[in-house]
Simulated scan of single mutants.
Amino acid sequence: MLVVLLAATLHASWNFLIKQKKDKHISMTAVVLGHAPFALAVLLFSPLPQIESLPYIVIGALLHTGYQLFLLYSYRIGDLSQVYPLARGVAPIVVAVVSVVFLGTHLDQIELSAIAIIGSGIISLSLVRRSRWFKKL
């Protein structure tokens, strides 16, 4: 549990730092390149991936790059308090939908409940934002 909380804290922290900086491309690049020494250290102690996994690695890298570009654009126009939860909350929903539709995965009641709770949280964020907008009118 502590590792999960530490990971969440680190994620939120680097997103906060990127949002605060004027040049978001440079700050995002610094965060991404900051991972490189740790990745290289891990590669020294782990086997190389099988050649069959290469397409998945490339697709995963492309999707993650798209996600980071989405964050950069979103942080230019949106509040961290809106963008970050939406970006983090949509991922489990997308994974669940792709898993069910394309991979034939069956989700248990508890998993469906978790997805519904996440979806409700995302919807509540947009409703809060909308109510603030209507108050300004």
Results as ranks from 00 to 15, higher is better:
residue 1 M to A: 13
residue 2 L to E: 04
residue 4 V to K: 03
residue 4 V to C: 07
residue 4 V to N: 03
residue 5 L to N: 05
residue 6 L to Y: 15
residue 10 L to H: 06
residue 10 L to N: 03
residue 11 H to G: 15
residue 11 H to F: 14
residue 13 S to L: 05
residue 13 S to Q: 02
residue 14 W to C: 12
residue 14 W to D: 09
residue 15 N to M: 03
residue 15 N to Y: 02
residue 15 N to K: 00
residue 19 K to N: 14
residue 21 K to P: 00
residue 21 K to V: 02
residue 21 K to F: 09
residue 22 K to Q: 10
residue 23 D to T: 03
residue 25 H to S: 07
residue 25 H to I: 09
residue 25 H to F: 14
residue 26 I to F: 15
residue 28 M to D: 03
residue 29 T to M: 10
residue 29 T to P: 09
residue 30 A to Q: 13
residue 31 V to E: 01
residue 34 G to M: 01
residue 34 G to V: 02
residue 35 H to M: 05
residue 35 H to C: 09
residue 36 A to E: 04
residue 37 P to G: 13
residue 39 A to I: 05
residue 39 A to E: 00
residue 39 A to T: 09
residue 40 L to D: 11
residue 40 L to Y: 09
residue 43 L to N: 06
residue 45 F to P: 03
residue 46 S to H: 10
residue 46 S to L: 01
residue 47 P to N: 05
residue 47 P to Q: 01
residue 48 L to F: 13
residue 48 L to S: 12
residue 50 Q to C: 12
residue 50 Q to S: 15
residue 53 S to E: 07
residue 53 S to C: 07
residue 53 S to W: 15
residue 54 L to E: 10
residue 54 L to V: 13
residue 54 L to Q: 11
residue 54 L to S: 12
residue 56 Y to V: 06
residue 58 V to Q: 14
residue 61 A to Y: 13
residue 61 A to K: 02
residue 64 H to E: 06
residue 65 T to Y: 15
residue 66 G to I: 11
residue 66 G to D: 03
residue 69 L to A: 10
residue 70 F to M: 06
residue 71 L to R: 00
residue 73 Y to G: 08
residue 73 Y to P: 10
residue 76 R to H: 13
residue 76 R to E: 10
residue 77 I to Y: 13
residue 79 D to V: 08
residue 80 L to D: 13
residue 81 S to L: 03
residue 81 S to R: 06
residue 82 Q to H: 14
residue 83 V to M: 05
residue 83 V to P: 08
residue 83 V to N: 08
residue 83 V to F: 14
residue 85 P to Y: 06
residue 85 P to A: 03
residue 86 L to I: 15
residue 87 A to W: 04
residue 87 A to S: 15
residue 88 R to P: 15
residue 89 G to F: 05
residue 90 V to D: 04
residue 92 P to A: 08
residue 93 I to A: 13
residue 93 I to T: 11
residue 94 V to F: 11
residue 95 V to R: 00
residue 96 A to E: 09
residue 97 V to Y: 00
residue 97 V to Q: 00
residue 99 S to L: 01
residue 99 S to W: 03
residue 100 V to G: 06
residue 101 V to L: 01
residue 105 T to Q: 13
residue 108 D to P: 15
residue 110 I to S: 13
residue 110 I to W: 13
residue 113 S to G: 12
residue 113 S to A: 05
residue 115 I to P: 15
residue 116 A to T: 04
residue 116 A to V: 09
residue 116 A to N: 02
residue 116 A to M: 08
residue 117 I to M: 08
residue 117 I to W: 11
residue 117 I to P: 12
residue 117 I to C: 07
residue 117 I to R: 02
residue 118 I to K: 07
residue 118 I to S: 14
residue 119 G to H: 03
residue 120 S to Y: 15
residue 122 I to G: 12
residue 122 I to D: 04
residue 122 I to W: 04
residue 122 I to L: 12
residue 122 I to P: 07
residue 123 I to N: 06
residue 123 I to F: 14
residue 126 S to H: 06
residue 127 L to E: 07
residue 127 L to R: 08
residue 127 L to K: 08
residue 128 V to D: 10
residue 128 V to T: 15
residue 130 R to L: 13
residue 130 R to N: 15
residue 131 S to G: 05
residue 131 S to P: 01
residue 132 R to D: 12
residue 135 K to L: 02
